[in-house]
Write a protein that binds this DNA or RNA. Structure first.
Lengths: 163, 163
DNA sequence: TTTCCATTTGCAACTAGTTGCAAACAGGAG
DNA sequence: CTCCTGTTTGCAACTAGTTGCAAATGGAAA
């Protein structure tokens, strides 16, 4: 998959093909991992004199809107981006050891069905980062120090930023 | 439910009961909606001379960790907080008109089961904000302007920050 | 009641990301 | 090829949130 494949997508959708956008897309396309906005800037600037950070964020926003790129927030205080590739996947992130694994695209199929059928809501359930405990950390952790009443909380600690 | 109920929770968990923490918890407890960190600061300061923003963020992080408070990121560039109350709920947010509705706590039950059984992963699936299109906006929108290949994308636009 | 120390606060400097606006420019029309 | 206009960029100032550190303090122990 070469980034030039996508350049027509841009123009066809009525957007302009600027060198900044092309370089940014190229950099993301050449990487097979998750890149932060800052990493993308750095890589582009190796080849292209200067590039403003607003342009990077605005280009990323556009690519995400067009479905070319997927953003993921792993809760490290910065969002990462990767090319959208099929088949889709979700990320399972262990809150204790940080280990990351992948889960199938169809994980949320029953949720999607329920939301459509019972709530008449068409959800966007692409590509989530799901926090929790991996197998190893479930075993090692004694953690659940019971609370006075069983009322509050499902138990799992919920970290800050999620969507 | 009065905020003093929770003060023992703090101490029992080995944390100190400071006036800042008490006032912050009280403010969240007295509100039945979602408050931003800034709104919380403002409300506390009406009663308590001064309060630093670091203290607010650190207190909120603690309350979230203890399961007293739920954070939600509605994608407006700031996280909101509310008391954790049972029964639980999730938020459905329309990406076009912004309308917000609630969904049942058990929405993710099948996902949780699958992750436990097939991935040996214990997820924290409390209290999500799910983006998509509400019934009205599904009807009104012609939007899906077909793409060259059916390959990429589930269709739904994925906004920036999600977890 | 006083002492003590780990925890917590305030502060200031920092990072990630956003926004409004003027200048630059992609790309279509003449 | 040149002109034109709406789009996009660069910039600077801004917001939300984080971090390291010194000073203050909750609360346990003497």
């Amino acid at each position: 998959m070469h980034h030039t494949e996508f350049l027509d997508d841009l123009r066809q959708a009525g957007h302009r093909l600027t060198p900044q956008r092309e370089m940014i897309l190229q950099v993301i396309c050449e990487s097979d991992g998750h890149l932060t906005a800052d990493e993308i800037s750095a890589r582009v600037r190796k080849r292209y004199s200067y590039l403003n950070k607003s342009a990077v964020y605005r280009a990323l926003e556009l690519f995400v809107r067009l479905g070319l790129v997927n953003p993921t927030d792993f809760g490290q205080g910065r969002v990462t981006y990767e090319m959208h590739r099929d088949p889709h996947h979700h990320h399972l992130v262990c809150r204790r050891c940080g280990k990351m694994t992948q889960a199938d695209a169809d994980l949320f199929a029953p949720v999607e069905k329920k939301l459509r059928d019972e709530y008449a809501f068409l959800p966007a359930l692409d590509h989530f980062a799901i926090f929790g405990l991996c197998q190893k950390c479930q075993r090692s952790g004694a953690e659940r120090k019971g609370r006075r009443s069983g009322v509050r909380g499902s138990g799992a600690e919920v970290k800050k930023v999620y969507r």
